[in-house]
Design a protein around this nucleic acid. Structure first.
Lengths: 233, 233
DNA sequence: TTTAATCTAAATCTTTGGATGGACAAAACA
DNA sequence: TGTTTTGTCCATCCAAAGATTTAGATTAAA
């Protein structure tokens, strides 16, 4: 078994550290099922090489000075090729990991990790999976959950939106869709002056000065979650 | 080594399948460092048990009919205790995994997995980490990246924001912070009439009628990502 | 039954916003 | 070199937004 005649996966290496570049290249060349089809120290060059040679996998250092590796990942993803990017980094910073994965990286490996782990990551990604080493995965999730926890918290703590009457909510809803007084009056079948009264009351309760601030307050404090509303404009 | 006098971790089991419940309990009781301090087939009962006994870890079946296990996780997280929840599920559905992790689950384990893997997950979570088996983690990330890909797509397709000059971007930025003409003029050290000119040009380019619509357009089309800006109001 | 909220509405007034058209200098571009 | 873009500024005019006050009708709560 395991005797399929599978095409070798073609790999491109991007790392501004020529030293490290050589090391990784040799390491991968020891593997029978991978071919290093290119190496470069520049992210800009990498983009062009990828367009030309369509490698299966790109090992991308994201701690480069000149052009940011994360930005490079973003550009590569925009190309909509089948190329899979594995981020290579010196840091296990949660924010870095999160951003790399968000941009579409299929893996994230630390430079300090054992070479066997790098090969394993490549194997997994080549097989179509997304691979994050357990330790980094844990980091990622802490960050992920924290960001959602804050989001949930915002919607609780003394939210001025709770003081609005249901009619005021309706009016605010229409405000957050870009309506003016006339438009709101027409949609609610009430007079324009009545709308003005409601809007003024909303300003008082939200402690803002104008409609733009009211809309911003609503959007920043989970108003859409309170009322089931679709996107605006 | 490994000879610390660590307090045993106290575990609560929640599963509407009494059969499975017994099996897991016996499995965990084989471990010297864990105590099962309670079992229940009801999510509602579980919440109360957690309030009373403050277990270190809860194994929560999320495929229960009566009360949704996910909802239970949410309620447990709201209590802000140190209790760590591991989701237990029969399905490796990406959406389920995503939602469980989003709600704060510290782990997600399939019922079909080997018992050794369940114990390993408990070990990791007890040690303060977040644990997702590699296969599920891969599922999670596919879902995660897909959701961000759509978001990124919105920001590409014919985005009117790209037509703005850098000065206009500055002005729009201040608009999205709730400033009026006077405020913007003061902050940019230019006259109010100049601001009006810029704002009018912005309206033209974004094809909107007033500032509120402009702000809404900006927010709905990833303007904040284009410029590095903090929250408004 | 009184009290309090809410929704509605109007009148008046002030401020702000927005449209339009024109002007000029600097910089970028071809 | 001329041409275009950008950023700055002004005046005018009208529309819209917002502040303030007053008040009738309805309904729910005390």
């Amino acid at each position: 078994m395991m005797r399929e005649f599978k095409r070798k996966s073609r790999i491109l290496l991007v790392d501004d550290n020529a030293e490290h570049l050589r090391g990784v290249k040799e390491l991968i060349n020891l593997e029978t099922n991978y071919d290093v089809v290119g190496v470069t120290t520049s992210a800009n060059v990498a983009i062009n090489l990828i367009k030309k040679y369509r490698p299966d996998i790109v090992l991308m250092d994201i701690n480069m000075p000149e052009k940011d590796g994360l930005q490079a990942i973003q550009e590569i993803e925009k190309l909509e090729l089948d190329t899979k990017v594995i981020a290579l980094s010196g840091y296990d910073d949660a924010d870095l990991i999160f951003r790399a994965m968000k941009l579409g990286a299929k893996g994230y490996v630390l430079k300090t990790m054992a070479s066997a782990q790098l090969i394993y990551a490549i194997d997994e990604v080549a097989a179509g999976k997304i691979y994050l080493p357990s330790a980094l995965s844990s980091r990622f999730f802490e960050y992920f959950q924290r960001s959602f926890k804050n989001e949930a918290a915002v919607q609780q703590e003394e939210n001025l939106l709770t003081y609005l009457t249901s009619r005021e909510e309706e009016v605010l809803d229409l405000l957050t869709q870009g309506n003016n007084y006339k438009g709101i009056a027409a949609k609610l079948f009430i007079s324009e002056t009545t709308v003005k009264t409601h809007v003024n009351n909303i300003f008082q309760k939200l402690q803002v000065n104008d409609r733009t601030q009211a809309v911003l307050y609503a959007l920043n404090n989970g108003f859409a979650n309170r009322r089931r509303v679709k996107a605006a404009v």
